[in-house]
Measured scan of single mutants.
Amino acid sequence: RRVTVRKADAGGLGISIKGGRENKMPILISKIFKGLAADQTEALFVGDAILSVNGEDLSSATHDEAVQALKKTGKEVVLEVKYMK
């Protein structure tokens, strides 16, 4: 599913991630910080795999590559996510 997140002037997306190619895992949302941008969408969940950020494929990204992709986003971020059981 596709989720658009609008960041506030102060603060980032409000998520922590884990996983990555070096761990043989997808990039997973490991924490959502209450009240910040990702939480306010009410459409992102701990355990979601982030498949892409603004069209940039993260399916084979390392953890560091995913962190950089998320950091360089502007005010509006489009995440392609899939819930992983």
Rank of each mutant, 00 (worst) to 15 (best):
A8F: 10
Q68K: 14
K18L: 10
A8H: 12
I15K: 03
A38W: 05
A10W: 12
V81K: 06
K18D: 09
M25C: 09
V53D: 00
A10M: 12
A66D: 00
A8G: 14
K7C: 12
L79G: 04
L70Q: 05
S16K: 14
S52A: 11
H63T: 12
Q40N: 10
S30E: 13
E56S: 09
L28F: 15
V67E: 11
E42L: 05
K7S: 11
G55H: 08
V67T: 12
G74I: 04
K71S: 14
F45G: 08
L44V: 13
L28Y: 15
K31R: 11
A38C: 09
S16I: 12
V53W: 01
F45Y: 15
K34S: 10
F33N: 14
K31D: 10
K34E: 10
K24F: 08
G35L: 00
R1W: 01
D48F: 00
L13I: 13
V46C: 11
G35Q: 04
G74F: 05
D64L: 09
A8R: 11
G12A: 11
V78D: 11
D9N: 13
V5P: 02
V53T: 03
L36G: 15
K85Q: 14
L36Q: 15
T73K: 07
V53Y: 01
E65P: 01
R6T: 14
L70P: 05
A61I: 00
I27L: 04
S52M: 06
V81Q: 06
T4Q: 06
H63R: 13
L70C: 04
A8N: 11
K82W: 01
R6C: 14
T62E: 06
R6N: 14
S59N: 09
D9A: 15
S60K: 12
K24D: 13
K75L: 08
Y83A: 15
V67Q: 11
L28A: 07
G35I: 00
H63G: 06
S16L: 13
N54C: 02
A69R: 09
G74N: 09
M84D: 13
A66T: 03
L28K: 06
P26G: 05
A8W: 09
N23L: 12
G20P: 04
M25L: 10
V5I: 15
E42A: 13
K85S: 15
K31W: 14
E42G: 15
E80F: 06
E56F: 11
S60F: 11
G55N: 07
V77E: 07
A37T: 07
I15M: 10
H63I: 12
A8Q: 14
K71P: 03
L51T: 09
M25R: 08
M25K: 07
G19S: 02
K82H: 06
D9F: 12
V53S: 04
L13H: 02
I27F: 00
L51H: 07
S60C: 12
I17S: 03
A69P: 00
V5W: 03
G20V: 04
P26C: 03
L70S: 02
E65K: 05
E56W: 11
V46P: 09
N23R: 13
A66Q: 04
A8C: 07
I32L: 07
E22W: 01
R21T: 08
E65A: 06
Y83R: 15
T62L: 03
K24A: 10
S52P: 03
I32A: 02
E56P: 02
K71Q: 14
G55Q: 04
L28P: 01
D57G: 11
D48N: 06
E65R: 06
G55Y: 01
G12L: 12
G55R: 04
L36V: 06
A8K: 12
L79W: 02
K82I: 11
G20D: 04
M25V: 04
I29Q: 04
D39V: 02
I27T: 01
A43R: 11
E65I: 00
I17H: 04
G47N: 13
A43P: 06
V5L: 13
R1Q: 07
S16D: 13
E56R: 14
L51A: 07
A69D: 07
A37E: 08
K75N: 12
A43V: 04
S16N: 11
S30W: 06
D39H: 08
F33V: 14
V77N: 05
D48K: 01
R1L: 02
A69V: 14
E22C: 05
I17M: 05
K75C: 10
E22V: 03
M25F: 00
N54G: 05
K34C: 07
G11F: 09
V5D: 00
I17K: 01
L70V: 05
K7I: 14
G35R: 05
K31F: 02
K85E: 14
R1M: 06
L13S: 03
S59Y: 05
E80N: 08
L28M: 14
V46A: 07
K71L: 10
R6H: 15
L70T: 04
V46M: 06
L79N: 06
D9I: 11
A10P: 13
V67F: 06
I17R: 03
T73D: 08
K71I: 10
K72E: 11
I32C: 07
E42M: 11
F45D: 08
K34Q: 10
D64M: 10
T4N: 06
V77S: 07
A69S: 09
K31T: 07
A43W: 01
Q40R: 14
L28G: 04
S59L: 08
I50C: 05
D48Y: 00
I32P: 04
G14M: 03
R2T: 13
V46D: 03
I27R: 01
P26W: 00
G11I: 15
D64I: 12
Q40E: 09
D39N: 05
S16Y: 08
M25Q: 12
N23E: 13
A43F: 03
Q68P: 03
K82L: 10
K31C: 07
K34R: 10
K34P: 15
Y83I: 07
A43T: 07
K24M: 08
L51R: 07
T73Q: 11
Q68I: 09
G74D: 11
G19T: 01
V5Q: 02
K71W: 09
K75M: 09
K71D: 14
E80G: 07
L13N: 01
L51K: 07
V46I: 10
L36C: 15
A10V: 13
I17C: 02
I15Y: 00
V53K: 03
V67N: 08
L70R: 01
N23V: 12
T62F: 00
T4G: 02
K7V: 13
I15A: 02
G19D: 01
G35A: 04
L58N: 01
V67K: 10
G11A: 12
Q40I: 07
G47D: 10
K18V: 15
G14V: 01
S60D: 15
T4H: 09
Q40D: 09
K34A: 10
K72L: 09
K7P: 12
I27Y: 00
Q40K: 15
L79K: 06
T62M: 02
A8M: 15
S59W: 07
L70G: 02
V67I: 13
L70W: 00
I15Q: 03
T4F: 12
I29F: 00
I17E: 02
A43M: 10
V81L: 07
S16V: 12
G19E: 03
V77Y: 05
F45L: 09
V81S: 05
R21D: 02
A37P: 14
G12F: 09
K72Q: 14
S59Q: 11
R6F: 13
N54P: 01
G20R: 02
A38E: 05
S52Q: 07
I29M: 04
G47W: 02
T73N: 07
Y83H: 15
R21H: 08
K71N: 15
G55C: 03
G35D: 09
K7F: 10
G11T: 14
G55E: 08
V67A: 10
E65Q: 10
S52N: 08
E22R: 03
E65Y: 06
K34L: 06
I27S: 00
V81W: 00
F33I: 12
E65C: 03
V46K: 06
V46W: 02
E80L: 07
V3I: 09
V81E: 06
V81C: 06
A43I: 02
G47R: 03
A61L: 07
T73R: 07
V5K: 02
R1C: 06
L36A: 15
V81N: 06
N23G: 06
L13E: 05
P26H: 01
R6Q: 13
L36K: 13
D64S: 13
T73V: 12
G12I: 09
A10L: 12
F45S: 13
G55D: 08
A69Y: 07
I27G: 03
G74S: 10
